[in-house]
Design a protein around this nucleic acid. Structure first.
Lengths: 152, 152
DNA sequence: TTTGAAAAATGCGAAGC
DNA sequence: GCTTCGCATTTTTCAAA
C-alpha cells in the first residue's frame, strides 16, 4: 500500500465532491487525465476508497437513529457481530475496548420498529449480557472528509 | 419532500454503485435518461443524498478509530458539540438520550494523537463531566445501503 | 415532468515515450 | 509510469409534447 502526494491530492479533491471528473482533477493537479484515471483505478482496486452515495436517513423515512452498546459473554462476541451484520437496519458494527464489547449503529422507520428490533431480534441472540440503547436526538456532524496521510 | 417509486429505485441503484450512469439507470427502469437526470438533480437539491467517496481509514493512515461517549453538564451540550465539530479528527457528533449526552466518532493516525486529543483538546472544553473512550478493535460492518421508504 | 436529438464534455484503450 | 490521440460513451442543453 503506497500513497504518494498525487494520490493524496486526488483523494482530497474527490472527498470534496465525489462527482469530479478525471479531466477536472488533472487540470488542478497539473498532470494528465490518464494519470488521474490510472491512479483512481489503482486506488479502487486496492480498496483505498469507493464511490458511494450518502443518503440523509431522515429524508428517506428512517427517522429513528440509534447507537447501541452491547456487553457480551466471553466467547460470544464474534457470533453476535456476525448475526447483527445480517440486519439491514444495522449500518455499523464494531468490536471495541471499553465498557461495551460491541457497538452498533442502526436506523429505523419509527419507534415501533426499534422496539421490535430490541425485543424480537436482539433479545433472541445468545450471549448478550446487556444492551445500552442511545437514541439520537440531534446530529451535529457526519463527515466523510478525513485527514489523509501519505503512505509507503 | 416526496419520493415516489422511481426515486426509490434510482436511489437503490445508486447505493449499489455510486458511479452508475444516467443511461444505465434509465435502461433498467425503462424510463428516459432525462427523467433519471432530472430526478437525481431534484434529489440532490433537496439534500436527499450526495455523491461522496468512502475511504478505508486504515488505508489512508488513520489506524486508531474510537467512539467516545460524553456526559455533559446541563446547558453545555450544544456548545461542546459545536466545538467538537471543528476538529477534523472528529467525523461524527450527535446528541443522544441514554447514558451519554453526546456520542462522537473520531479517527487518529496513532495512539499518541488520540491521547493528545483527549488530554489537550477534550480536557479543555468546559462542561464535560465524563468521557468514555472505546477503541475499535475490529470492524464488522460499515454499510451505506439503507432501507429506503417512499415518502409523500 | 418527460422525451428526443444535437452539441459539448468526459471516459476509454492503445501506442509511444 | 506518464502522456497523447482518436473513438465511444455520457452528460448537458434545449425545444416540444
Amino acid at each position: 500500500m503506497k500513497l504518494d502526494e498525487i494520490d493524496v491530492q486526488i483523494l482530497k479533491m474527490l472527498q470534496d465532491n465525489g462527482k469530479r471528473s478525471y479531466t477536472d482533477i488533472a487540470q488542478q493537479l497539473d498532470v494528465s487525465e490518464g494519470t488521474v484515471r490510472s491512479r483512481i483505478n489503482r486506488l479502487l482496486k486496492e480498496g483505498v476508497f469507493e464511490f458511494i452515495i450518502h443518503m440523509d436517513p431522515n429524508k428517506i423515512g428512517l427517522n429513528v437513529q440509534v447507537i447501541i452498546g452491547i456487553k457480551t459473554k466471553l466467547g460470544h462476541q464474534e457470533a453476535i457481530a456476525a448475526h447483527l451484520n445480517d440486519y439491514p437496519e444495522v449500518r455499523f458494527v464494531g468490536a471495541f475496548s471499553g465498557h461495551h464489547d460491541l457497538i452498533l449503529q442502526a436506523y429505523f422507520k419509527n419507534n415501533e420498529d426499534l422496539v421490535n428490533f430490541l425485543n424480537k431480534e436482539l433479545a433472541k441472540l445468545e450471549g448478550i449480557v446487556a444492551a445500552d440503547v442511545s437514541i439520537e436526538l440531534k446530529q451535529y456532524k457526519d463527515s466523510f472528509s478525513y485527514m489523509i496521510q501519505e503512505q509507503d
